[in-house]
Design a protein around this nucleic acid. Structure first.
Length: 193
DNA sequence: TAGGCCATCTGGTCCT
DNA sequence: AGGACCAGATGGCCTA
């Protein structure tokens, strides 16, 4: 496993799309839709030139005709790109928030996304097991062949695993239920109910 | 230099 | 209809 201790990289949005690559539109000559750091974005390094060469992004199969897209189509694409960028930024923020709450050994190294998810899953599993074990051990009348609550939990896990074809971690369903309830609560609070 | 990770673009599909 | 979501493609950056 490699170390990934590097400053966060950020790329400039490639604001192009109207001209087909190599079709006479000079790099960066596209209409700049407003000032660069618009829409609350922090400054992003310039990389606008890349787009005209088809960098970062699927190449279009070919020019659908001379001149490329219509202006309205270009505008929609640019807006869509911006939304996608924002969406990915939000996703990355969520990853960062997750990194900050999972304890891990390599505190000096940034966890990759896959590592973050894997650790989070295991962390939740261990916490769940701990809670169940502790709570069942403190409940009266649960002596006998182990904590019944935990047994029930394990049974659930097995059933879910079978239902999912054994490909998914069984614990996914459990936190989602909690999230669902939490989300419902948030909405209730917002609406003052 | 290869491989891992990532940001971005893009078109398709789903959802509201 | 428009936005969100998704997955493929591409290239940059970084480390071993």
């Amino acid at each position: 496993m490699k170390t990934k201790n590097r400053p966060p990289r950020r790329r400039a949005p490639v604001q192009h799309t109207e001209a087909t690559p190599g079709e006479g539109t000079p790099e960066g000559s596209l209409p700049n839709p407003g000032p660069e750091p618009s829409k609350g974005l922090r400054s992003r390094p310039a990389r606008a030139a890349a787009g005209a060469r088809g960098e970062g992004g699927r190449r279009r199969p070919g020019p659908s005709g001379p001149g490329g897209r219509r202006d309205s189509s270009i505008q929609r694409r640019l807006e869509s790109n911006e939304r996608e960028r924002q969406r990915m930024h939000k996703l990355n923020n969520a990853f960062q928030a997750l990194r900050e709450v999972i304890p891990h050994v390599r505190a000096d190294k940034k966890l990759s996304k896959i590592e973050t998810l894997t650790l989070a899953k295991n962390y939740i599993k261990s916490l769940t097991a701990t809670i169940l074990t502790m709570s069942s051990s403190r409940l009266p009348g649960l002596e006998g062949p182990g904590p019944k609550l935990y047994q029930h939990y394990q049974q659930q896990q097995q059933q879910q695993q079978q239902a999912a074809g054994g490909t998914l971690g069984a614990t996914e369903a459990q936190p989602q239920g909690h999230l669902q309830r939490y989300s419902t609560q948030i909405h209730s609070f917002r609406e003052g109910t």
